[in-house]
Design a protein around this nucleic acid. Structure first.
Lengths: 229, 229, 229, 229
DNA sequence: TATGAATGAGCGTTCATTCAT
DNA sequence: AATGAATGAACGCTCATTCAT
């Protein structure tokens, strides 16, 4: 007899999560109220509770979704196989390219909000977050190791150290991008990272052959980049 | 004419700010209550309002203070003069050493909280934050430039790009440290950064002579560092 | 013309009342939700409103039904005719036997809930309840009177007083049984009441000849009853 | 510096409890809202939480107070020593006298409300309630035993059974009184109980010598009592 | 007729803020 | 100047009730 399909329920759930993400970004985890989230999702406050057991539950779902997307993004970026160094560079560039996207700011804020929530609230969330970071580091490390075996990166380099540095650069770049807003110079940062990776190569001469995929030549655009006001 | 000296007022103000900082770190901006802050500062809730107009006012003051301290820390770290590269490395190490200190976690949390507040609330706060980051980058860039002029870093390197990368590494390292908790491997990260800086040098041979100041040889401790579980 | 017969409507109404009774017993008048009642009755929440105007309406109906059942129970218990004292004792025992039944607890709770509702809510409900109690007392009083006329109870005894006492014992016994749960000693209470009734007999010698009907010898079981912990 | 004394706090607490009791009696445990209780106590809703941690806490306190008073009343009533039967009769009369008091109705409702809460909600409350009833029964039983030893009650009577019966009569009388309102005939009930107790005496002749203490001769007033309308 | 998604009023509770002391 | 009792607005959440399907 029910006309309301599972698809409808899923759509609503999705809408609530989107609305919640938007409000969290705008007002923060505590500042976002259920009423606002509901209004943003086109519902009344009470209706939220047909889809989530509590506000905390909504928050958890938002965070979980964001973490899943985060990891998927990196996995996918590292999936290229022709040259490991190439893949690494592609990954770096793909992630960096995200900074330019519309939702970058929101995602960064949400990520920081998650970091704080994980650092403070439930130990469970913290553990989950730690697992995610470890997995990310391990993925990067394997990538670096493969590049070393392929002779693309100096075998003397500590793979893990480089992986951690890359991840830190990634996280810091997002934060800087958020803080510097329009005047951010993340292109310069990308160029720096790429140059650094090349410096780690055994031979310094292959500096030109990797020319990236989708975002056409970030490196080139650095020169055109306006200086800070 | 007043019995209550300015010094007394300042002391109280300071105590309130310290207490607020502590509570914000523990509970977050919204989670920290005036009553808790007052108790931590040794006052009653009502007394706060003799020194600050509102809770938001307290928060703003805490953030402002944190930003001032942040900038001071970096300025001081870069004040060394004998060798610019040496100074840079010292600065990097000094900041990194902070990660190990008792208050590192608190300061990172507060910094992220500030980042979020600046990204969200008043445009004024955001502008202030942007200025701070720009100044930091400029400081680092000048440092790099000097090192290049002194022949310590390859002149072909984009100074600003390197500066941005260093700052991003710094910020990201703090965040990672917060998220990985005890299992963080910031030593490896420091080693990576140092190695990277050396890679940027024209001659690779000066790798050993900079041996740092207070925290005795982070580089050495990297080898002893246990792997992730 | 209607496909839906009156029988169907009655069956649904009955099912809803049963479900409501069950939920009221479990959760109390306020604690029972329409949704739970509906689920228990095998309907959706909205369907209830085809049979009852409001939740309060359902509650009223439940209470009315309970009061009707209450009175019917006592009328039936007193219907025996061979010996009036015998009938009285049978009635007492039948009611007491109910304490042991599965539904005793539920009925007691519902009865107390009804008592409270009658004492608080509509004056109409209160009047109805009062009528019920008066009728019960009158029934018992007539019974006692007949026993007195039959020479089974001392004619000097105030029939109404004894009737009131018997009813009070009955009500109190149910309440005690509810409160003492498994460790209740209602057998002892029954024995006391029976002994009391015999004490009221002109001659004390007929103490043995009434041996009850269904529940085999409550009196005998008293001795076996364990003491309170 | 505080002008607000402990006495003030105690007074407020008391006021809240009184208000809570009043509202519970009027609307029931669930129907009584914090706002109403606060208003009745002359406070705003939020102020309640300076004195009690939660609504449930207020309820618990009300119930605990009521139970304490209940037990105290019975203990005191049984404290007389000249004649145990006399004490028992006094106790019965004292409790019965309470039925006439202004607050009797409220206390009965509160007691029933407590009974229901104990039967349903926390097992802790239920256990407490059970303890209370057991203690009451034990007290009455000892009283009966002493009366038996003093030759005032037939030694063949089961002391515990009589005690349980007395308590049940007590509880039932309160309930009946609540339901019959003004037309209740609790005097007749008292007379019945007294007569019953005398019937249990070895010799029936001492029927006149106990003439009670404070409430002057309930027995006498029975005759004047109007019949039901 | 029956459904169950949605509403919206109202609850318990928290907490920034005020103010009599 | 400092207290902390009190306020009152707002939050998260529940649930009786409605109504499109």
């Amino acid at each position: 007899m029910t006309k309301v399909t599972q698809a409808h329920i899923d759509a609503r759930t999705e809408a609530i999560l989107d609305a919640a993400m938007k409000m969290i970004v705008q007002k923060g985890v505590h500042g976002a109220t259920i009423e606002e989230i509901a209004a943003e999702a086109g519902l009344s406050a009470g209706a939220i509770y047909r889809y989530f057991a509590s506000k905390e539950d909504v928050l958890r779902a938002v965070i979980a979704q964001q973490m899943k997307q985060d990891r998927a993004l990196m996995e996918q970026a590292l999936a290229s196989t022709d040259s490991v160094l190439h893949a690494l560079l592609s990954a770096v560039q793909a992630v960096w390219a995200g900074l330019k996207s519309e939702k970058a700011r929101d995602e960064t804020i949400l990520s920081l909000e998650t970091t704080l929530a994980a650092a403070r609230q439930s130990a469970e969330l913290g553990a989950e977050r730690r697992q995610m970071r470890k997995a990310e580091i391990t993925m990067l490390e394997q990538c670096v190791r493969q590049a070393q075996e392929a002779g693309e990166i100096d075998p003397a380099v500590d793979g893990r150290a480089l992986a951690v540095m890359l991840l830190a650069c990634h996280l810091g770049a997002h934060q800087l991008d958020l803080e510097l807003q329009d005047s951010a110079d993340t292109d310069a940062l990308l160029a720096g990272v790429i140059k650094m990776l090349h410096k780690f190569a055994p031979q310094v001469k292959k500096e030109e052959e990797h020319k990236p995929c989708h975002p056409p030549s970030w490196t080139d655009r650095i020169a055109r980049k306006e200086r800070y006001s």
